[in-house]
Simulated scan of single mutants.
Amino acid sequence: MKKFLSIFLSTLFLCLSLLAQEKFLRDTSFTTYSAFIKERKNFPKIQIAKLPLSKTSLEKLDIPFKDLGYRKLNLDITYPKKEKKGGYPVVILLFGGGWKSGDKSMCNPQARFFAEKGYVAVSVEYRLSPEAKYPAAVLDVKEAIRWIRSHTKEYNIDPYHIAVLGRSAGGQLAALVGTTGGVKKYQSGKNLFISDDVQAIIDIDGVLSFHHPESSEGQVASEWLGGTYVERPTVWDDASALNNVTNYSPPILFINSSNPRFHAGRDDMIKKLDEYNIYSKVHEIPNTPHPFWLFHPWFNETNNFALAFLNKIFK
């Protein structure tokens, strides 16, 4: 009887776990290839950016950093082989996809670029809207930051120099995570005694305000924020980095396409940063589609802008 009960409970747990995972199947509509097919209609000369791993770098994929019970969240780390006293600065990479699609592997070419230039690059998985609404993704990224600071020796990390870089929805997340360091309502998970502060932000075409005259965020944002602005105004405001700027906010770089929709709130945020004498810089690349960072001829230009900013802040 005990053996039967044990088998029954194990089977039940397995079924419930599979059901939970089935309920939260990823939306795979946004990939590098799908973006390429879409954008080459207007930009026929673009090419998908690929970068092999440098001989001076190491790469470890799918390292668990958070256990959700029914599945684990993973991150990828690309880092210099050579040991360095005090460790290397870190750049955390957040993929885009409208908070509903996309994958951390889309950041790997950029991660390899930064590792070759003397940074530990960490591509982070976070929960998307089909699985969990805001603020789940924010909590995931902050837990990844704490995990990184708790694994400094393994990857030769400098815990005092961490930047967060995001593209599109990941850019919005990067700006929000960077401007809410230590904020109690985003304190959840393990290692809460470790800081989730970052020392620099790079926002690549991520909106800074959801409810703004320049913003046209609608259904996709509503899916992540759990309702429309009329239904959840406080959430829309809280999730906007523009509303979280303080004198403790870190320096920020904005790299933008020529699409004004993805600049929403940027100029107002710069005005606030200027009031606190916090450094910011803008690079707006003309004649570019929204996901320009994925493709040549803009891949290297984007990364070089980011690298110059990081070197200015960290080195």
Rank of each mutant, 00 (worst) to 15 (best):
F65C: 07
N287K: 11
Y33D: 05
F254T: 05
H161P: 04
K81N: 01
N303R: 07
L16N: 02
S101R: 04
D237G: 11
G189W: 04
I202R: 06
H283S: 06
F299A: 00
D197V: 04
E143R: 09
S249I: 04
D158Q: 01
E217K: 14
Y186G: 07
K23A: 15
E125Q: 15
E59A: 13
C15M: 15
K38I: 09
L14G: 09
S209F: 03
A20E: 12
G98H: 03
T31A: 00
N42R: 10
P109G: 06
H296Q: 07
F8L: 15
G226V: 04
S258Q: 09
W224N: 04
G227S: 01
Q172H: 15
N243L: 04
L18V: 13
V245K: 02
T152G: 12
G86E: 07
L225P: 06
S34Q: 00
R167A: 15
G171D: 07
K60Y: 06
P250T: 02
T28G: 04
Y155E: 00
I48M: 08
N247Q: 11
N247D: 13
P130A: 08
R146E: 04
K153W: 03
L208T: 08
L242G: 05
E59C: 02
Y134N: 10
V164P: 00
L307K: 10
V198I: 12
K45I: 11
S6V: 15
P159T: 01
W147L: 12
P233S: 01
F113W: 05
A20G: 14
S209L: 05
E22T: 07
P52F: 01
T152K: 11
E59H: 10
E143Y: 00
R40G: 07
A136L: 05
S101I: 07
G87I: 07
K3S: 10
V220S: 14
N244C: 03
Y248D: 15
A144L: 11
I148R: 02
R112Y: 00
V207C: 08
D267L: 13
